[in-house]
C-alpha cells in the first residue's frame, strides 16, 4: 500500500514538473507547479513530516505561488519559449540527464550510515510530529529561527523598496 501511494505521488510529481518546464505560458507553468507542490506535500506526509507538509501547502502553494501568479498577471509579458539556440537547448538537457544519471548511479551502490538521532519511533508515536518539531525548533535552532525572521523582514523591506514606483 505504502509503495503504491509513493509511486503514484512520485509519478504525479515528476510528470507535473515536466509539464511545468515545458509549458509556454507562465500561467500554465505556475498551475503545474501547484500540482507538483501538492504531490511533494504528499511525499512529506509519507515521510512522517506532517507539519512540514502542512507548511508546504500553506506557504508554497498558498503564498509563494500566488505571488508568482500576481507577478505574471501584473507584467503580462510576451510569451517567451525556450532559448533560441537549439544546440544550447540540447546540451542543457543532456547535462541535466548526465547529472541525474550520475546521482542515481551513486544511489544504487549506497547505504545509510550515520548516527541515529533522538527521535525513536516510540517517541514519535507518543509526542507526535508537531510537538517534536517545535521542541527542536525552539531549543536547538532558536537563534537561526530568529535570524530567519530577520531575513524575512529584510526581504520584505527590500521587495517594497525595489518594486515601489518612483
Amino acid at each position: 500500500m505504502e509503495q503504491v501511494i509513493f509511486y503514484i505521488l512520485a509519478f504525479v510529481a515528476i510528470v507535473s514538473s515536466l509539464f511545468m518546464i515545458t509549458r509556454n505560458s507562465p500561467v500554465h507553468s505556475a498551475l503545474w507547479m501547484l500540482l507538483t507542490f501538492f504531490a511533494v506535500a504528499g511525499i512529506f506526509v509519507q515521510l512522517d513530516a506532517e507539519f512540514v507538509a502542512a507548511i508546504q501547502v500553506l506557504v508554497y502553494a498558498g503564498a509563494i505561488l500566488v505571488l508568482y501568479l500576481f507577478v505574471v498577471m501584473l507584467l503580462n509579458p510576451k510569451s517567451h519559449g525556450f532559448i533560441k539556440v537549439p544546440f544550447r537547448y540540447v546540451i542543457g538537457v543532456v547535462a541535466s540527464i548526465i547529472i541525474v544519471f550520475q546521482v542515481l548511479m551513486t544511489l544504487k551502490s549506497s547505504e545509510v550510515i550515520g548516527k541515529l538521532g533522538w527521535v525513536t519511533p516510540q517517541l514519535a508515536q507518543e509526542l507526535g510530529n508537531v510537538k517534536m518539531f517545535g521542541k527542536e525548533l525552539f531549543t536547538t535552532y532558536l537563534v537561526p529561527f530568529e535570524i530567519a525572521s530577520i531575513l524575512l523582514l529584510i526581504a520584505m523591506i527590500g521587495a517594497i523598496v525595489l518594486a515601489k514606483k518612483d
Binding site: R88, I91, G92, A95, S96, I98, I99, Q102, V103, T106
Partner: peptide, 19 residues
C-alpha cells in the same frame, strides 16, 4: 544561463572525478 551551464559542467566534472 551560460554561467549556470558552466557551473553545471563543473558539477558534472566533479562527480565524474568522484566516480
Amino acid at each position: 544561463q551560460t554561467y549556470i551551464f558552466s557551473m553545471v559542467v563543473g558539477v558534472i566534472l566533479l562527480l565524474t572525478i568522484f566516480y
